[in-house]
Amino acid sequence: MFYFTIIGTSDNPIYEAEFTTAKNTFQPEIKELNPYIVHSTLDIMEYLQWQRQPQLDINTSSGGFLRSRHSTQENSYLGKVDSFYGLAVSGFLTYGNIKFIMVHGNGTVDDTVTRSFYYEVYELYLKTLMNPFYKVNDPISNSAFDSKVRVLSKRLFV
C-alpha cells in the first residue's frame, strides 16, 4: 500500500491519494499519521534540494542512493529519502520545486517502478499546470487527474 502526495510551496498538500488493494491496506494508526510523516520528510527533502550531489550521509535514518558522482546526474528523482518505523518514504522534486512524496507501506522502494511512476505523474501535473485557470498551489481536484493517477498506480503493485 502506498500513500502519495504532492506538496506545494508552503508545506500544503495539493493532492493526496492512497493506493491500496483488498489485501494491502494501512493500519488505522499509520493511516492517520501518513500526512504528518510526509510533512516531516519535507525537512530531508529541503536539505537534499540544494545539495550538489544529493547523497544522504548520516543526516537521515537510512541509506542513500544514486552512487554515481557525475555532475550531470539527475537530481529530480531522489529515491528513498527517509524511513519511519518500517515504512519507507521516497521523493521527487520538480523543476519548480514542487515535491512529490510517497510513503511505501512495505518498507522498500523499487527504484525503477517508482521513478517511472513519478515521471508519469509529473507529466500529468504539468498538463494541469498549463491550464491558465489553475493557479500554482491550488489543490488539484480534477477527477480526470485523479483517475489517471490511479491507473498509473497499478504499476506499483507488481
Binding site: 500513500y3 493532492y15 493526496e16 492512497e18 489543490p139 481536484s141 477527477s143 485523479d146 483517475s147
Partner: peptide
C-alpha cells in the same frame, strides 16, 4: 461525470 471522484482538499485522500 466519471467513476471515481477528484481530490477534495478539505476531506483528504481517498482510497482506491
Amino acid at each position: 461525470k466519471v467513476a471515481g471522484q477528484g481530490y477534495d482538499y478539505t476531506i483528504g485522500p481517498t482510497q482506491t
